[in-house]
């Protein structure tokens, strides 16, 4: 505050003059959340990097991983990223039905990814490669499972937002929520790049 003594008396000016619209700082806040999430994944990657070679005379990556399956999985996540991008573009144009359609396609790709991952986990556990078997498998299931859990919650969030858009249309608040989920979804794809490179591809090279 500044006070001027000249004239009739002190005049006070509030320093914060322009009002911020509701949700104006949401995107930055959500980005900060994603960065903290990134640190969680960094810890899990570090744990896998340290423990990933300790098989305890159990199965090694070469005995367990099926690269064809991982490639299909990667494709599913990549397709879901581009379809979410299309959903954002149609959202910008204000086309509710098209946005909903693209969101639905994204959700289906997300579900396909989760199904393939669950199939892979079930197959590994069936072969006796459970998280308890070795340090390698513990860290593997923690890292890949945490990513899968994120995708699961992302899909739940996606369905929630589809209901919101169906009820209230593409209002300002819904646009903001969809943009947050967009960042979340693309961020998960970025983490998956690390997973398929560091865990699956490097695992096959061991």
């Amino acid at each position: 505050m500044t006070a001027t003594t000249a004239g009739t008396g002190p005049v006070f000016h509030l320093e914060e003059e322009h009002a911020h619209a509701e949700g104006g700082s949401t995107m930055l806040g959500f980005w900060l959340y994603l960065m903290s999430d990134c640190l969680i994944f960094a810890m899990l990657f570090a744990a896998y990097g340290v423990l990933g070679g300790n098989y305890a005379a159990g199965p090694a990556p070469k005995d367990l991983f099926d690269l064809d399956l991982v490639a299909v999985n990667t494709a599913m996540l990549l397709f879901s990223s581009i379809t979410y991008g299309f959903a954002m573009l149609t959202m910008d144009k204000g086309r509710v039905a098209a946005t909903q359609a693209w969101l639905a396609v994204t959700g289906l790709f997300g579900l396909a990814f989760l199904s393939i991952e669950l199939y892979e986990f079930a197959h590994m556990i069936h072969e006796g490669a459970t998280p308890q078997r070795s340090a390698f498998l513990s860290s593997f299931f923690t890292l890949v499972g945490t990513h899968g859990l994120h995708v699961t919650f992302g899909t739940v969030w996606l369905v929630t937002l589809m209901v919101q858009v169906a009820r209230f249309g593409l209002i300002e608040a819904n646009r903001r929520r969809l943009m947050c989920l967009s960042m979340f979804w693309h961020f998960l794809d970025v983490v998956w790049i690390g997973v398929f490179t560091f865990v699956y591809l490097m695992g096959m090279l061991r």
């Binding site: 619209a21 991982v70 581009i82 991008g85 903001r176 943009m179």
Partner: peptide
């Protein structure tokens, strides 16, 4: 304006470029 915090959206071209690059950059390591 301030409503969406100035976060930038992509364009169709941008998303498509990113997608094609990603496919190539995924396919080669596999």
């Amino acid at each position: 304006g301030h409503g969406l915090g100035g976060a930038a959206h992509g364009s169709f071209r941008g998303y498509l470029t990113g997608f094609v690059l990603s496919v190539i950059l995924t396919a080669i390591p596999f």
